[in-house]
């Protein structure tokens, strides 16, 4: 089958070897304030990769700041995504994207005004499966130009992708070669990090380890800072090591209104308000203005939506304490 999707985010592996050769491997203080991390690291030509899984462990605070600074990225992977890529769409201007899953908040519904960007043909989609995009990151993480996989074969998902069929030189079987995806910038929210960028993620990893290895610039946002001794004493907890990381931003509750595993649950009431607002351009514009543009920082946004009291409820829900329920 010939494929007709646009190839996005691909780089030659030797070019990338040259890039990674020059990347600093020093133990340096990489702590940045949120506005500075966004203004210094996000560029308009960027292919952005976002960590987490849509409603879980996403770098919301960073993405809100991207919107506030009206930074537009060139493209983005809609991979296991929902609220995270919805936020990226708000700044607009993307012409093509990679998509395996997006513009729906899973069981909760789909934001109508953002879906319209795709339904009027304004954004061209290269199709993938979640596995295929995870393997594209993995191919890059391995320093390769592709990986052979057994997904997508024979379907329209394959036809509208930018993969290519190959024959295995050992078994003679037909495989799908998925091209390496080297994003320009990756933003990943973690539980704890030190000043050098060593980062610990608890619970599901989604594709974040491979994304951190594949990306040219890696921004870690973290619930809390820890001392480097924490990693020296527990090196098995280094989910993402310092030598991959360019900046560390401490931002407690930085995934809110999404979930942070073992810390706080997603705020289902917020997402219902978000989806309700997304029924019309007018209500959506007002919602984004109130919740993002007019908030002086991320904590004003949290305050607007219930503040510490709401966070307490969400923490009790996450921990499954008696008397707490959805």
């Amino acid at each position: 089958m010939d494929t007709i999707g646009e190839l996005l985010g691909y780089e030659d592996p030797d070019k990338m070897r040259g890039f990674f050769r020059k990347k600093s491997k020093k133990l340096e203080n990489k702590i940045k304030k949120l506005p500075d991390a966004v203004s210094e690291f996000v560029a308009e030509s960027d292919y952005m990769a976002i960590g987490g899984f849509g409603l879980v462990r996403i770098p919301t605070a960073f993405l809100h700041e991207v919107i506030k600074q009206q930074k537009k990225v060139a493209t983005c992977a809609f991979f296991t995504s929902n609220y995270d890529t919805d936020l990226v769409l708000i700044n607009g201007m993307m012409k093509s994207v990679d998509m395996s899953y997006g513009i729906a908040l899973e069981a909760l519904g789909s934001p109508k005004v953002l879906r319209k960007y795709f339904e009027n043909g304004g954004i061209k989609v290269t199709e993938w499966s979640n596995g295929a995009l995870a393997w594209r990151y993995k191919a890059a993480a391995m320093g390769l130009s592709f990986l052979p996989v057994r997904s997508m074969l024979g379907t329209d998902t394959e036809r509208y992708s930018a993969a290519k069929e190959i024959i295995c030189p050992f078994s003679g079987k037909k495989y799908l070669a998925v091209p390496a995806l080297y994003p320009d910038i990756a933003v990943i929210h973690v539980h704890e990090a030190d000043m050098y960028g060593n980062a610990h993620i608890k619970g599901v990893l989604v594709a974040d380890v491979d994304i951190a290895k594949a990306a040219k610039k890696v921004i870690i946002t973290t619930e809390r800072m820890v001392d480097t001794e924490y990693f020296r004493n527990n090196p098995q907890n280094t989910t993402i090591p310092f030598y991959l990381v360019d900046a560390v931003v401490e931002i407690p509750y930085g995934s809110y209104p999404a979930e942070m595993p073992y810390e706080y649950l997603f705020d289902i009431d917020y997402f219902k308000r978000f989806l309700q607002a997304a029924e019309s351009d007018e209500t959506f514009d007002r919602f984004i203005k109130e919740n993002i543009y007019e908030c002086k920082d991320f904590y004003e946004f949290i305050s607007l939506n219930g503040g510490v009291e709401r966070i307490k409820e969400l923490r009790n829900l996450e921990l499954g304490l008696k008397g707490s329920s959805l």
Binding site: Y101, F118, E119, S129, N130, T155
Partner: peptide, 16 residues
């Protein structure tokens, strides 16, 4: 595909 009447979320993990 390039000018859809309705856009759904896509494959997710279903294809895999």
């Amino acid at each position: 595909h390039d000018n859809p009447k309705v856009r759904f979320p896509g494959s997710g993990g279903a294809n895999d």
